[in-house]
Simulated scan of single mutants.
Amino acid sequence: MARILIAEDEEPLRGLVARALNEDGHEVVATADGAAALDTLQREAGRFDLLLADIKMPVMDGLALALATARDFPRLPILLMTGFADQRERASGLEALVSDVISKPFSVAEIKFAVAAALAKGKK
């Protein structure tokens, strides 16, 4: 299965998504913000199959993380999450870099489906 890096500042949601993806057999590394996720990516030399990041986070938001990831690890698929319409609009210019933007709140089934779709798209 895939190795997935999660960047989500809300601990309950981060835990829920990590558990859901673990259930599907994925190896999950979870971080609390974009800066921690970027540090992890650099320390691990980009050895992940997917970056799943919230857009609105402290320290470094998901859009800045997506841009840095695309620059440093251009083959790494990126899936963004947001509960804010204005944040979704900010991400609309990144279609070339981002597989999709999933709206919060989402169900466990929806996040699993979005991750599977992003992983499938990333293998092409």
Rank of each mutant, 00 (worst) to 15 (best):
M1E: 10
I6Q: 03
D9I: 02
L13G: 08
G15I: 06
V17H: 01
V17D: 03
R19A: 10
A20F: 02
L21M: 08
E23I: 12
E23A: 15
E23R: 15
D24S: 11
D24G: 08
H26E: 04
E27F: 03
V28C: 00
G34D: 04
A36V: 02
T40E: 07
L41P: 03
L41T: 02
R43K: 12
E44V: 07
A45F: 13
A45I: 09
F48K: 00
D49H: 05
L50C: 07
L51R: 06
L52F: 09
D54G: 01
D54R: 07
I55E: 00
K56V: 13
K56A: 14
K56G: 13
V59N: 10
V59S: 07
M60Q: 11
M60V: 10
D61P: 02
L63R: 03
L65G: 02
A66V: 04
L67I: 15
L67A: 12
A68S: 08
A68V: 03
T69R: 06
A70K: 11
R71Y: 14
D72R: 06
D72I: 04
F73H: 05
P74A: 04
P74L: 01
I78E: 00
I78K: 01
I78T: 00
L79W: 00
T82C: 01
T82F: 06
G83R: 05
F84G: 02
D86R: 15
Q87R: 09
E89W: 06
E89A: 08
E89M: 07
R90P: 05
A91W: 04
S92N: 12
S92I: 08
S92D: 15
L94T: 02
L94H: 06
E95F: 13
A96F: 12
L97C: 07
V98M: 04
V101C: 03
V101N: 05
S103K: 10
S103T: 11
K104G: 01
P105C: 04
A109I: 14
E110G: 12
E110P: 07
F113T: 15
F113L: 14
V115Q: 03
K121S: 12
G122W: 04
K123M: 12
K124C: 11
K124T: 14
